[in-house]
Structure formats: structure tokens, C-alpha cells
Write a protein that binds this DNA or RNA. Structure first.
Lengths: 151, 151
DNA sequence: ATTACTGCAAACTATTTGCAGCCTC
DNA sequence: GAGGCTGCAAATAGTTTGCAGTAAT
């Protein structure tokens, strides 16, 4: 009587609830994101990591699109490059925020819910009912401030 | 002895300080943004508005890129569509935030500096020196809550 | 006069799509 | 067994680029 469920299974369940079929290609791509939660892959990144498999690039694009619709991934735009990046959604919590260093360009994720007070203000002053938020803070990270740009 | 300066002149000065030449095409594009401050045009929007002039589309793209480098425009990504949008930077103040309605898709700008406390927390807990920020809040606007989707 | 800017059209490139066959359910 | 999914290759479309002529300083 196991209550437990691997993370992979949780995401698969989410896919099933959207009537999506489970194929080896989809599992493979999902696993790449699960094994690299701090990364923000592009479609091309995924294609490169699948070099050994026979998965076609059209499938990668279609899968990423599917995962976004289902709520497994989220498109993020770090407007510095021209590519669409994908960020794994944590099924349990609010979308996280990003700190981007203008010096070493490292992207750090933070999960604190920093915006509760902001949402309260917007709700009060603009009568806007907030459902989700995206926050990007750009600046200089600790390492770069100390003159030790990330190796 | 006029101290005053039109907004257009202020932006032109900014261009001059970057050694950019002032051409009719650049003034024309700048004026479109100045006359529609609440809009977030795409390159194509601008090209359409220049239909009557002979300005080529390559010039539009090159001009938008220049304006971004100079700090007159800022690329914004409302990840719902595949286009790059450009937002006029207010030369005086911090970059503003966006409220996007998930129902009528209207984009509202707000200028309140809502993030001072957030920046303080990030600075303290992550030793991250914030230089700029981008915040997008998605939800339901007042009109849609009342069942009166935009006009 | 010098040098940057423009317009045209061709080139690029990330992403999408049509279709025949395959695989999951 | 049926319908969604895949792979291939061709198509699409937003953006970039080369170049010769033009215009701003």
C-alpha cells in the first residue's frame, strides 16, 4: 500500500489526465528536465542531448509545446538571446523567480514567495485579481561582487 | 532662454550621445512610440504604420535594435505570441510593470515602485545587487471580473 | 568629404507542418 | 483496432545581412 510516488510518476499522471499517450520520447525528454532542474533548456539543447536516440526534432518541438499546455513546463524568455527556454514547473508550488547576473549571466532561481504584498497592493489599487506572476531581477551576483566571476 | 525641452528632443539627445545620426526614418519611428506610449509594438506593427513612407523593413529592425542599445526602447516578451515587442523606456524612472489579463488580454502598465521591499530581501538573503527588474502579473482585470470584457 | 544609414532582395534559422507508417491504449 | 504520435523533409516566417547608392555631419 504505497502512498509514495516518484516525481516522474507525478508528471506522467499529469500527462495522462490530459489524455496524452506515454511514449518513450516523451519520457526521455521529461527525464532530461527532471535530472537538471536548475537548467533552462532550449529546444536545441534537448535535441543535442538526444543525439544518440533517433528522436526527431519535430517531436522535440511538439513535446515541449505539449508539456507547456499541460503545465509541466513553462516558457521563459531571458531576452538576451533569441531562443525560447523551458523551465520545469514545480507541481507543488508557485512559479519561482529568477535572478540574472549582468556580469557572469548565471541564472539563479529563488522560491520565496516575495510577492504576496505586491499582489495585495495590485488587488486593492487596480482591482486586478492576480493568478500568476513572473519576476526577473537583474543585477550583480555575490560572486561577481567579490570579483570572482563564476568559474 | 528656454530650459524646456520636448520629450522628442530628450530622446534625440540620447541618440546623439551615442553618436547616432538623426535620419527622418529614426524620427518617424520614435514619434510612433511617443504618440502611443501605452502600446507595445512589434516590428511588424511599425512596418505597417509606415506603409505610406518608403522606409524599408530592414531599417525598422535596425532602428529598433539601435533604440534598445541606446536605452530608448526595451524588448518585452509577453510569451503568449511569438513576436518581439518593444516598450518605450521612460527616461526618468524605473522600468514599469505589466498587468496582463488572462481573459481580455489587455496589458496595463503600472509605475508604482512595488519592489523596493523585494529588492531589500533579495539583497540581504542572496547578496544579490539588484540593478533592474521586470515583473509581469497575470490574472483577471477589473472589467472582466465584472463580466464586461474590455469595451 | 567622410562615414554612417537606407532600401532592396536574398540569405538565415528557429520553428511548424504534411504525410505515411508506427505504437500506445 | 483506432487514433494519436513519430520521423523525415519540405515549408514557413520573423529577422538578418550584403551591397551599392544616399544622406547626415
Amino acid at each position: 500500500m504505497k502512498q509514495e510516488q516518484t516525481e516522474l510518476e507525478m508528471y506522467i499522471e499529469k500527462l495522462r489526465s490530459h489524455k496524452a499517450k506515454m511514449t518513450p520520447q516523451r519520457i526521455e525528454i521529461l527525464n532530461i528536465f527532471l535530472a537538471n532542474k536548475a537548467e533552462h533548456f532550449t529546444a536545441e539543447d534537448i535535441i543535442n542531448r538526444l543525439e544518440d536516440s533517433k528522436t526527431g526534432q519535430a517531436t522535440v518541438y511538439r513535446t515541449l509545446e505539449l508539456f507547456c499546455n499541460v503545465g509541466i513546463l513553462k516558457k521563459v524568455n531571458f531576452t538576451d538571446d533569441e531562443f525560447t527556454h523551458y523551465d520545469l514547473m514545480d507541481l507543488a508550488q508557485h512559479f519561482h523567480h529568477h535572478l540574472i547576473c549582468n556580469s557572469c549571466h548565471k541564472v539563479v532561481e529563488i522560491n520565496d514567495d516575495l510577492l504576496e504584498s505586491v499582489e495585495a497592493i495590485v488587488s486593492r489599487d487596480y482591482h486586478f485579481n492576480v493568478q500568476n506572476h513572473e519576476l526577473i531581477l537583474r543585477g550583480i551576483c555575490h560572486a561577481c561582487q567579490e570579483g570572482q566571476p563564476d568559474e
